[in-house]
Amino acid sequence: MSMQTTIEEKLASEFDVDFLQVENESHMHKVTPGSELHFKVTIVSNSFNGQMLIKRHRMVNSALQQEMQQIHALALHTLTPREWQARSGSVADSPKCRGGGK
C-alpha cells in the first residue's frame, strides 16, 4: 500500500472526517521521482471542535506516529467544519524546498 493511502486510511479511521485530502508534495523537492516523503494533509473534522491548534496537530501526529518515522515533511491543516466553511474550503500552499535535507 502506498504511503499516501496509508495516511488517508489511518486518518479516516481515527477521526470523524468531514473532508480529507492527502497530497503527495514530494515532487516539489529534490527527491527521486515517485518518492513519498513530503505530504500535505487537509483534514476537516468535528473532533477538532474546541481544541487549540497545537492540540489538533498533536492528535494527527499521534495518529500517524509510525508514518512520521518514515516521511520527511507533513504540512498540516486541521479545521472544524465551521472553520472550513468560513474559509470557503481553501488552505495555504506549502512552501518551496530550500534544500536543507536532513
Binding site: A73, A75, S94, P95, K96, C97, R98, G100, G101
Partner: peptide, 15 residues
C-alpha cells in the same frame, strides 16, 4: 530551524 533566519535551508523554516 533548519538554517538561519538569514539563510534558511528549508521552506517551512523559512516561512
Amino acid at each position: 530551524m533548519k538554517g538561519t533566519p538569514q539563510l534558511p535551508q528549508c521552506g517551512f523554516s523559512s516561512r
